[in-house]
C-alpha cells in the first residue's frame, strides 16, 4: 500500500569490547512503511536499542545499508547526519532525558533552535504541543516538578517539535506505572492515527506491544517473528470483537462495551 519509509538491507552491527567482538545485529532485513505503528520486542541483549540507534542515525551499522526515504544514510558524513536527526526523527527515551535546568516549554523548544524558528514561533508551537500531550498550564514547570508520566509527555512533545517523519521510542513506558503506561501508549496511538506519524517503539511489555499495529520479535540480532496488534483494527475504526464502528479515542467499543 504505502511506499517504504525505512529500508534495512543486511544490516549488521558488531561492537568491539577490547579485542572481543560482540555481535548485536546480524544481517537484519526490515521495511517500515510510512504511517506504521511498530513495536519491537525481545529478550535483554537481543539488539533492540542497537537497532533503534541505527534507525535514528545515532550510530552506523558495521555493514549493510539503511535507506531513509530512499536516501542511504550509512554513507552520510556527520555534518549532514545531524540534519536528518533534527528534521526527520523524534526520539523518546526510557529515562525521558529532559534537561533539568530548562522548564517544560524550554525543553520542547530545544530542537526548534536548530531550525532557526523565530522565538515567538518556537514558544507558540511548544505551548501547542504541550497542550496536545495534555500539559497545558505546566509550561513553566521544571522536570523535577513533574511526575514521571508528565515528563514522558514533555519528552513526546519535544520529539514532535520539528514535525518528524518517524518517532523512535526506546522503552518509553519502562519507567512508568500501569496507569501512565497506557496513557502514553494511547497518546502515541492517537498521534499515529490523527497525524499519520510513523512510530517505532521498543518494549519489553507484551501488553503494550499488543496495542501497536505490527509487533516484531528480535532475538540474537535477527527478526525472528512478526505479529499483528490490535491497532490494526483501531485504524480501520472497527471493533475487533463485534466489528462495530469505533472512534480512535475510544477505550471501549460503543456497541459491545468490550475493552479495546
Amino acid at each position: 500500500m504505502s511506499k517504504p519509509l525505512l529500508t534495512l538491507e543486511k544490516v549488521s552491527k558488531t561492537y568491539m569490547l577490547g579485542k572481543r567482538e560482540v555481535p548485536a545485529l546480524s544481517n537484519l532485513d526490515l521495511q517500515v512503511n510510512k504511517g506504521e505503528f511498530v513495536s519491537i520486542m525481545g529478550p535483554s541483549g537481543s539488539g533492540k536499542t542497537t537497532l533503534l540507534n541505527m534507525l535514528g542515525c545515532l550510530d552506523k551499522p558495521t555493514s549493510g545499508t539503511l535507506l531513509l526515504s530512499d536516501v542511504d544514510v550509512t554513507k552520510m558524513p556527520e555534518k549532514d547526519l545531524y540534519k536528518i536527526r533534527l528534521n526527520k526523527i523524534g526520539f523518546v527515551f526510557q529515562t525521558f532525558n529532559l534537561l533539568p535546568y530548562l522548564n517544560a516549554r524550554e525543553n520542547v523548544e530545544l530542537p526548534m533552535e536548530g531550525k532557526f524558528t523565530s522565538k515567538t514561533g518556537r514558544k507558540q508551537r511548544a505551548s501547542e504541543l504541550l497542550g496536545m500531550v495534555g500539559l497545558s498550564g505546566r509550561e513553566r514547570h521544571r522536570p523535577q516538578r513533574l511526575s514521571a508520566g508528565e515528563q514522558q509527555r514533555v519528552s513526546i512533545a519535544r520529539a514532535l517539535a520539528n514535525d518528524p517523519a518517524i518517532i523512535l521510542a526506546d522503552e518509553p513506558t519502562g519507567n512508568l506505572d500501569s496507569k501512565n503506561k497506557y496513557e502514553i501508549v494511547k497518546l502515541l496511538a492517537n498521534l499515529n492515527i490523527n497525524q499519520g506519524t510513523t512510530i517505532i517503539m521498543v518494549t519489553h511489555d507484551g501488553q503494550v506491544a499488543a496495542q501497536t499495529e505490527r509487533m516484531l520479535f528480535l532475538s540474537d540480532g535477527k527478526i525472528t517473528r512478526e505479529k499483528q496488534g490490535r491497532h490494526v483494527a483501531k485504524k480501520k475504526y472497527t471493533c475487533p470483537h463485534c466489528e462495530g464502528k469505533i472512534a480512535p479515542g475510544d477505550e471501549r467499543c460503543p456497541s459491545c462495551k468490550k475493552k479495546l
Partner: peptide
C-alpha cells in the same frame, strides 16, 4: 545530556 542534545539534532 550531551548525547541527548545530539540525538535531538544539535550539530557538533
Amino acid at each position: 545530556e550531551i548525547g541527548t542534545l545530539k540525538a535531538i539534532g544539535f550539530s557538533n
